Simulated assay, not measured.
Amino acid sequence: MPILMLIIIGAAAGFLATRVMKVDTGVLMTVAIGIAGALIGGLLLRALSVLAGSLGGFVGAVLGALLLIWIWKKLKENS
Rank of each mutant, 00 (worst) to 15 (best):
M1H: 09
M1Y: 10
I3F: 14
L4I: 12
L4F: 09
L4K: 05
M5E: 09
L6N: 11
L6P: 03
I7R: 06
I7Q: 05
I8T: 15
I8H: 10
I9G: 00
I9N: 05
I9P: 03
G10Q: 03
A11I: 02
A12V: 12
A13F: 09
A13R: 06
A13M: 04
G14F: 07
G14N: 06
F15R: 08
F15K: 08
F15G: 13
L16H: 04
L16S: 08
L16F: 15
L16D: 05
A17R: 11
T18W: 09
R19W: 13
V20R: 08
V20D: 07
M21E: 15
M21T: 15
K22A: 14
K22Q: 15
K22P: 09
K22T: 14
K22R: 15
V23L: 14
T25D: 11
G26D: 09
G26F: 07
G26V: 12
V27D: 10
V27E: 13
L28Y: 07
M29W: 07
M29L: 11
T30Q: 08
V31W: 06
V31E: 06
I33A: 09
I35C: 13
I35Y: 03
A36N: 07
G37W: 09
G37N: 06
G37F: 09
A38K: 04
A38V: 00
L39P: 00
I40F: 14
G41T: 11
G42E: 10
L43Q: 14
L43R: 07
L43H: 12
L45A: 00
L45E: 02
L45D: 01
A47E: 04
L48N: 03
L48T: 12
V50E: 12
L51Q: 12
L51K: 00
L51I: 05
A52D: 13
G53W: 05
G53A: 10
S54E: 09
S54A: 05
S54I: 13
L55G: 08
L55W: 02
L55D: 01
G56N: 00
G56M: 02
G57Y: 04
G57D: 04
F58T: 08
V59G: 00
V59I: 13
G60S: 01
G60I: 01
A61D: 02
A61Q: 02
V62S: 01
V62D: 00
V62W: 05
V62K: 03
L63F: 13
L63W: 05
L63A: 12
A65C: 02
A65H: 02
A65R: 02
L67A: 14
L67F: 12
L67N: 01
L67K: 01
L68Y: 08
L68V: 10
L68Q: 03
L68H: 02
L68D: 01
L68A: 11
I69A: 06
I69L: 15
W70Y: 06
W70V: 02
I71A: 13
I71C: 04
W72I: 00
W72D: 00
W72V: 01
W72Q: 00
K73Q: 12
K73S: 08
K73D: 04
K73L: 14
K74P: 00
L75H: 10
L75T: 13
L75P: 03
L75F: 13
K76T: 10
K76E: 11
E77C: 04
S79V: 14
S79I: 14
